[in-house]
Amino acid sequence: MPIAINSDEVLTPPVAAATVMVVRDGPSGLEVLLVRRHGNSGVLGGVHVFPGGKLDASDGHADSTAVDRTPVVCRDVLREPTLEPAMALGLHVAALRETFEECGLLLGQPEGAAHVQAVRALTATGTPFADALRTRGLPIATACVYPWSRWVTPRVPSVTNKRFDTRFFVAPAPDGQAVEHCAHEATEAVWLSPRGGLERYWAGEIDLAPPQIMSLSELSRLGNVAQVLTTARSRPPSLIEPEPFDEEGCRVICYPGDPRHSLSARVWPGPTRLVHRNHRFEPEGGLAALLG
């Protein structure tokens, strides 16, 4: 696990980003899509993550006639009343765009398989993603991604010196579309059950960053896509601002509900802290604590 443990605060403001937990019902239950970042990536190299990335300047300027919801509605579903509507729209578009760029999936497009290569060709020449969809007569389907949580990187680094303010979304996998990971950014894309992903992490077969660990722990308590989407619709997105500290020579990251966190209310039923030991982040109570 790449880790940048030090006691110095990173004073730069976090960069806005979006990530999507794409889910589907597999033969044995719920599955989620993970991509493995290239080892030479500047952020989380070699780590399995959900598709996502930074907000682009063009994301918040999509043609209003092509978007299925207004920027104000996008802000309202994020439950962030002080957020600029254009930023809210941009975060939704970024979620759609990054999933397409990293996995080749056009979320919310029932006939998307017929348009993937054409959209790729347009974006390869510099056409913004939203404009490429409009050119193909496709709506910008912001309603197909559901806000799940918001993670803000702490000022004191525990994994990377870069800071992000990332909105996590969930979305059902589109029917009839095959995953094709971006060779420039990832080395594989894999469907795993949330439990299976955590078990592979615990066995040392894959690396996961703390937000992925805790998000998979949440998903492991749900059985299918319908339950995931019902959960997303039934609650506001959780705001998660991890608070790291050092204890007995180990870096600890605590989350809301932990005795050392400034917020006493829990945001999930699983463990409230991860400890960096054995070259990875582990919860007190081991794998069983993550799986509930």
Rank of each mutant, 00 (worst) to 15 (best):
P2N: 14
A4E: 15
D8Q: 14
E9R: 15
A16Y: 11
A16H: 14
A17Y: 03
M21V: 07
V23P: 08
P27C: 05
S28G: 09
L34S: 00
L34F: 11
R37L: 06
H38N: 15
S41L: 04
G42R: 13
G46R: 00
G46I: 03
G52P: 02
G53D: 00
K54T: 10
L55I: 09
S58E: 15
D59L: 02
G60F: 05
A62E: 08
D63Q: 09
S64D: 12
A66G: 11
A66P: 07
D68V: 09
V72N: 08
V77S: 08
L78I: 04
L78F: 11
E80P: 02
L83N: 05
E84C: 06
A88H: 07
A88F: 02
L89A: 03
L89Y: 10
L91H: 02
H92R: 01
V93G: 01
A94I: 11
L96C: 05
R97K: 09
E98G: 02
T99S: 08
T99H: 00
F100W: 00
E101M: 07
E102A: 01
G104R: 00
L106G: 00
G108A: 04
Q109H: 08
A114H: 13
V116T: 10
A121V: 12
A124G: 10
T125H: 13
P128I: 10
P128Q: 08
F129C: 06
D131W: 03
D131A: 13
L133M: 05
L133Q: 05
R134G: 09
L138K: 05
A141G: 07
A141T: 12
A141W: 01
W148F: 05
S149H: 03
S149N: 11
R150T: 01
V152P: 08
V152C: 06
P154K: 02
P154T: 01
R155T: 09
V159N: 03
T160S: 14
N161T: 11
R163L: 11
F168N: 14
F169S: 03
F169A: 05
A178E: 15
C182S: 15
E185H: 13
T187C: 14
T187A: 15
A189M: 07
W191Y: 10
P194F: 02
E199A: 02
R200T: 05
W202T: 00
W202Y: 10
A203G: 09
I206V: 15
L208C: 00
P210Y: 02
P210K: 12
P211M: 03
I213Q: 01
M214I: 14
M214E: 03
S217L: 04
E218P: 04
N224Q: 07
A226C: 09
Q227I: 04
T231V: 04
S234D: 13
S234M: 06
P237I: 03
P242N: 07
E243D: 11
P244N: 12
G249I: 04
R251E: 09
I253L: 14
C254N: 06
Y255L: 14
G257N: 12
P259K: 12
S262E: 14
L263Y: 09
S264L: 06
A265M: 12
V267K: 15
V267C: 12
W268I: 03
G270S: 08
G270R: 08
V275G: 02
V275M: 11
R280H: 12
R280A: 05
R280E: 11
F281Y: 15
F281E: 06
E282D: 07
P283D: 06
P283T: 00
E284Q: 15
G285N: 02
L291S: 13
